[in-house]
């Protein structure tokens, strides 16, 4: 039963208020993209056992989407940030590194 803080309304939201939305920071590929790019965009997922960046919606609250950095093996939450972010805030990256010194940042995750 997760708790995530909605960065939009500031509520510490119970999982029952939230709707999960899958991996974050995936670039949309539309017409003109290659088959491989389009396949990767729609289906290839990181699925790490460890630090994961993902989308959530405060569905039964303010209705806003937001992003979260969370560990899939311990369910620790490193932080949440607005859905409009194209990069991960430094504070969250620092916290991840502090908690998991061995973590290797995937290329697609951009620091702010």
């Amino acid at each position: 039963m997760l708790i995530l803080t909605c960065p939009c309304c500031g509520i510490k939201a119970d999982e029952t208020e939230l709707a999960p939305g899958g991996e974050a920071h995936i670039k949309r590929h539309g017409p003109g993209s290659s088959d491989a790019e389009f396949e990767a965009y729609l289906f290839t997922r990181a699925n790490p056992r460890g630090v994961h960046f993902e989308r959530w919606r405060h569905a039964y609250g303010c209705g806003k989407w937001f992003l979260a950095a969370r560990a899939t093996d311990t369910l620790e939450v490193f932080g949440t940030y607005p859905a409009t972010s194209t990069a991960v805030p430094d504070a969250i990256l620092s916290r991840i590194r502090a908690r998991r010194p061995d973590w290797i940042k995937p290329d697609r995750i951009k620091p702010a």
Binding site: R57, A59, G63, W65, A83, T84
Partner: peptide, 13 residues
């Protein structure tokens, strides 16, 4: 409605 909001908030914000 959720589909619209997803695209509006996360892609074309």
């Amino acid at each position: 409605h959720a589909h619209m909001e997803d695209w509006l908030q996360c892609e074309w914000f």
